[in-house]
Design a protein around this nucleic acid. Sequence first.
DNA 1: TATAATACTGACTAACCGGTCATCTGTCAA
DNA 2: TTGACAGATGACCGGTTAGTCAGTATTATA
Lengths: 277, 277
Amino acid sequence: MKKQLIMEKAIELFAKQGFEATSVQQITEHCGISKGAFYLSFKSKDELIIEIIDHFMIQFTSEIDYLVRSEREEENLLYKFYYAIFNSFQKHSDFGKILIKEQSRSFNQDFIVKMRYYDRLMDKTILSMVEHLYGDDKVKEIKYDLVFCIKGFMSMYSQLFLFYNVPLDLDLLSTSLVEKTNLLARNSTVPFISKGLIEVFEEPGLEKLTKDQILLLINQAIEEMDESVEKESLVLLKEQLHEQTFGRAIIKGLLENIRIHPQTKWISYLLGSFFNL
Amino acid sequence: MKKQLIMEKAIELFAKQGFEATSVQQITEHCGISKGAFYLSFKSKDELIIEIIDHFMIQFTSEIDYLVRSEREEENLLYKFYYAIFNSFQKHSDFGKILIKEQSRSFNQDFIVKMRYYDRLMDKTILSMVEHLYGDDKVKEIKYDLVFCIKGFMSMYSQLFLFYNVPLDLDLLSTSLVEKTNLLARNSTVPFISKGLIEVFEEPGLEKLTKDQILLLINQAIEEMDESVEKESLVLLKEQLHEQTFGRAIIKGLLENIRIHPQTKWISYLLGSFFNL
DNA sequence: TATAATACTGACTAACCGGTCATCTGTCAA
DNA sequence: TTGACAGATGACCGGTTAGTCAGTATTATA
């Protein structure tokens, strides 16, 4: 697939020079293909960056969210969370660089909307983790601040291995951040970010995808897939979406079936969120 | 001065659209001048952004550094530090937006070097504050982590009022962050960032400016200034640089004289650093 | 007022951009 | 061998950019 090649090479260039500073010409030269061939795979340069963002963020968001939803051992959850985050950043450091570089650029409206969307998803995941870890009541006042601090830790320490190619001890890093997070969660008394403040910049945006939108994705995936356990699971889940027949256990099992496959990972996440599992 | 006007208008546009997306044409139209006039004030578009960065970062860095150096009341220092930081961000929010938007873009090598330089200066200032606040020995192990956490707080909470125009309670924010910082400083036991790690990405860079370089700046400033106490102080400091004659008290007084003037604020900072005051 | 110096203008250039499309190429069935 | 066709090509287009410069307007000087 040419698409794959183009995306890989483009990520390298975007990470080095930034999106706007990289021309389609450069990308195609780096791939060893012609300019026209680029436009056989992508409608525009903007579509390319959007697809790149989606490709990685879907993996990333699903992975972290699954971890938080499934890990019941409270003591280990936070550690595993940090470890997974930084491990992912390290593995896909070029993409991480793009993410940080283009953070809040305004060159493309779709891009901003996309980034906001994934950012909110991450907020939601972290928040539910915080509530689960420390008890909804206990940290009620400071939980939003906690989310902010955790994100602050993530962004500051990410920059270490994104911009200085230092091999890092992820175990130590995670342990260190777990301690810091626990300290803040258990001892903070002065919240700054209130529920009201959150709502101001939460904006619309993050309402769940409607049943129809998810259905569309499922049908699409079913068509593209070969016969397999995953496809079977998808069909069953599609029926479940139409009328509730299975219990939680079966649904969870089905979601687990399709979670491994990269193509359906995202659907697993969306359905998990839809069914409140 | 046209330079002033161009910089002001350019900052507005850069904050809204980003540096690369703003053309020189747009800037000149926004100023009501011709394109040619722009190039009478600046050699290039790149030189403009560099001058903007310098103008604000010099103010910002000097201000924070002076605060940290002069405030002896330990209890209030941290509060004042956060307050000054966020107050400055709020006052110059357009510049803040540029700073975050263009954070780590690679469109211009000089730009990156500049940003690194000011970042290191800020690191140094925060580090010396941490050592002063909590005792050099007590936080020896975790002081670098503490610097990172403080910077993380700064960057996360800054985004609040930079990208959502919410009027914020700076007093509450500062109080809240003081508590968090104290918690981390007094209870953290697992450091991640070691002295060795710091040195890896500290790189060369931040050696002090040489005597000659400072002298150059002083001479330049003397030429541009009218007769005044400030100019007199500068001349005396220049002599002091050639051969040590005055005591610490006098030097400190002279530095204080030139600290108020925007044009010589930076020199005051550099000399303060040079004389170790 | 005449002259010199300075500040300013905007049409112009060369380069590059994203995107298009007539043309070509290699493959494979007939 | 032929013809058909999907995939690939790169010259080309309209548009935008940073930067230039010959010429004009304004101000200072004498």
